[in-house]
Nucleic acid binder design. Structure first.
Length: 297
DNA sequence: GCGTGTCAAGACCTC
DNA sequence: GAGGTCTTGACACGC
């Protein structure tokens, strides 16, 4: 089991998602920003290795405006060697990597342009992992999308786009994650049947929307959608409810007893866990200790 | 130097 | 149809 956190390291004084305004786009600005982002990413990865955190989500913002039409620059070629070195470092240290395109990536949107933009974004993020030379156990994680008042049609639209429009390089990495209001684990299992995509399981979302599956059973069902030789073991997002806040809101800091209970409940199941918790590596380090104490990591 | 309105992109809810 | 919310870090302007 590997433990990790997403995108941002709060102990370091750099960010790997520096950006700028579209209005101030220039090639020079792009190159300079990507250079800084990749240098910071290197530092974050080194921190992670030093601290035993071997699961990490790369930020979507590594290359600003990567899938925007304004960006005609061949950054892939320009940064080829840097990406390759980062990838070697990741592989040599046996780290697991994911990326999570954000809310704007909606494959089942009725709006054709939205679908096109979404695919372009997936191609960009997949190409980052490709340039790093990572195998297909490095994943792209998206949600089901909108329901548009007719979830059955939305699900089949997803499947159609998947089969007719997505490049193989994206399909090899794409996963679907259960969300906290529309697409439950059951819906994701249906999408898995239609496409073969593995399911990234989110325990807090499952608490928000489910069909009565107990937690351990839910984890087992999601894990069964992963083909070990192609996909690796189950990836999951772990969080717990922020007390007194809106349902589904992530806690500020890990509630250690709850995480301990979750590990006990899932004893014997192998998975990599991403702590989706606001204080980032701080909670991930606490989680790692708890997992190590139970002989899980 | 600091505070704050705004930022490429979507969906959904309320009014 | 307009506007707010979700979520959310960082830019960039104004003071």
């Amino acid at each position: 089991m590997k433990i990790g956190y997403p995108c941002i390291n709060e102990s370091l004084d750099c960010t790997s998602s520096r950006t700028f305004r579209l209005a101030s786009y220039t090639e020079e600005r792009l190159i300079e920003t990507v250079e800084q982002n990749l240098a910071c990413l290197r530092r974050i990865l080194e921190y992670n290795v030093q601290h035993g955190l071997l699961f990490f989500r790369l930020t979507s913002g590594l290359v600003p405006f990567a899938s925007h039409e304004v960006n005609k620059y061949n950054w892939q070629e320009h940064f080829k060697m840097t990406f390759r070195r980062l990838g070697s470092y990741i592989r040599n240290n046996n780290m697991r990597i994911s990326m999570h395109p954000d809310q704007f990536v909606v494959l089942n949107s009725p709006n054709e342009q939205t679908v096109k933009n979404s695919i372009a974004e997936l191609v960009y993020q997949g190409s980052v992992l490709d340039l790093m030379g990572l195998d297909t156990t490095a994943k792209l994680q998206i949600h089901g999308g909108g329901a548009y008042g007719d979830k059955a049609s939305a699900l089949s639209r997803f499947s159609e786009v998947y089969h007719t429009m997505l490049p193989d390089a994206v399909k090899a990495r794409l996963c679907v994650e259960n969300d906290d209001r529309t697409y439950s684990l059951r819906d994701c299992l249906y999408l898995h049947d239609l496409t073969g995509m593995p399911i990234i399981f989110d325990n807090l979302h499952h608490e928000c929307v489910n069909n009565g599956e107990p937690m351990r059973e839910a984890v087992e069902m999601a894990a069964a959608t992963w083909q070990p030789e192609r996909d690796g073991i189950l990836m999951m997002d772990y969080s717990s409810q922020a007390l007194g806040e809106r349902k589904g809101r992530h806690t500020q800091s890990i509630q250690e007893q709850l995480f301990h209970d979750f590990l006990i409940e899932t004893e014997g199941l192998d998975m990599d866990i991403m702590l989706e918790i606001k204080d980032k590596e701080d909670s991930a380090l606490k989680a790692l200790k708890l997992a190590q104490a139970l002989g899980r990591a």
